[in-house]
Design a binder for these strands. Structure first.
Lengths: 120, 120
DNA sequence: CAGAATCCATTCGGATACTG
DNA sequence: CAGTATCCGAATGGATTCTG
């Protein structure tokens, strides 16, 4: 929620712009840096509408509290949508929002590459 | 993407693997999830060979200890190289390794998008 | 200049147990 | 099934001080 009113623009002696340096990006990166966050986005993107247990299974071992938190945060950030069906037993499905999908597109090349690096 | 409601993503008894889900990726993501890590990669990629103080300046406010740690870790992970020149005053330059550059390519679309989201 | 070392507040995430 | 609540150890990152 760091909506900084003071934009730390290039207040320095910059008569020229520095080449795009993404240093000042703030809040969103903090969210994405939390554990499983990026994988979560990609997982939902890859699997499609997904239920809690499926996610839990996809990650070898996650504590439910952690996963739950991450899910909540991503829903609140509107990267994921949460649909709750009034059934018994209850069913909840998470899905990428439009924004989430865009994010996912940027995440996939990264994750793919990372995975590739590790499996060698 | 697999967002077609007509096509069930994961059928009941899947003897095959779910579509690429990057859940199990481990160590590298933990490194990248540390504070400033991704921005650091991109910053070095954008600015080129860069000195400690330049980096420090690029980020509004970072503690030297944190920045130093991150730099070390990225060097050790061989995403950055560290060249120390025997001069007075001492000069040190960080640069992307080949691996780091590949990583940077995957990071840039993400960071660019994130920045875009925040400045609107 | 480019850090290393130390100390510490905060946060994060896992384990466990419980609920609508 | 899909979480929530609580507790707690571990890790993170910032401030400060010092150095080759």
């Amino acid at each position: 929620m760091a909506n900084n009113p003071e934009i730390p623009a290039n207040t320095a002696d910059s008569t020229r712009d520095a080449p795009t340096c993404y240093c000042p990006v703030g809040g969103v990166m903090e969210l994405l840096s939390r554990r499983y966050a990026m994988q979560l986005i990609c997982a939902v993107g890859a699997i499609g509408p997904v239920r809690y247990n499926e996610v839990e299974g996809a990650f070898g071992d996650v504590s439910s509290s952690t996963l739950s938190s991450r899910l909540d945060e991503l829903v609140e950030a509107e990267y994921l949508s949460r649909e709750r069906y009034a059934e018994i037993p209850p069913r909840v499905e998470y899905e990428l929002t439009d924004t989430g999908e865009e994010l996912c597109h940027r995440l996939e090349p990264l994750l793919e590459w990372v995975e590739d690096q590790e499996t060698t």
